[in-house]
C-alpha cells in the first residue's frame, strides 16, 4: 500500500516515486508482480493519470519496473537496479541532512526520524494482501 499527501510541498510525482520505491524495497511487491494500472492508481489516489504515468516512467528509467504493452507494469528483479556505492549513498544522505539542517531541524529530531525510517524499511514485511488474505 502507498500513501501520498496532496498538501505536501513535495511534487506528487516525486512522492509517488518515493512511495513505490519504498514498497519495492520493503518487498511489499515482489519481482514479477504486476502493479495496478495507471487508471486504477490515479482513481484511488485522486490524482491525474499523467502523474502516475510519469512516476511509472521514472521507475522504469531507474530499472525498478518495466512496462510491457498489453501486460501492464511489473516489478523487475532488484538485482537489475544499478548498484549504489557508499560514496553515492553518502552524497544522498548528506543532501537530505543538509536540507533538514537548513530547515532548522536539530540533530536529535533527525536522528529519531532516521531511526524510525530504518526500522520501517527493514521491518518484517509481506507482499500486498491477496484475496486469500482478506478477512
Amino acid at each position: 500500500m502507498i500513501t501520498i499527501r496532496l498538501n505536501s510541498p513535495v511534487p506528487l510525482v516525486d512522492q509517488l516515486v518515493a512511495a513505490l520505491r519504498c514498497s519495492i524495497a520493503r518487498s511489499e511487491v515482489a519481482p514479477g508482480d504486476t502493479l495496478p494500472t495507471v487508471r486504477q492508481l490515479a482513481a484511488d489516489l485522486g490524482v491525474d493519470m499523467n502523474t502516475v504515468s510519469r512516476a511509472y516512467r521514472v521507475l522504469a528509467t531507474s530499472g525498478l519496473v518495466q512496462t510491457t504493452r498489453g501486460r501492464g507494469t511489473s516489478v523487475t528483479a532488484s538485482r537489475d537496479v544499478a548498484p549504489l556505492d557508499e560514496l553515492a549513498l553518502r552524497e544522498r544522505l548528506r543532501g537530505a541532512l543538509a536540507d533538514a539542517r537548513l530547515a532548522g531541524r536539530n540533530a536529535t529530531d533527525i536522528r529519531a526520524l532516521v531511526n524510525e525510517e530504518i526500522q520501517s524499511m527493514w521491518a518484517e514485511t509481506t507482499t500486498h494482501p491477496t484475496t486469500e488474505d482478506l478477512p
Partner: peptide, 14 residues
C-alpha cells in the same frame, strides 16, 4: 489530503 491506495491490481482479483 492524505491519500492511500492498494498496489494489488484489480484486473487480477477475479
Amino acid at each position: 489530503p492524505v491519500r492511500s491506495a492498494s498496489l494489488a491490481p484489480r484486473h487480477l482479483d477475479g
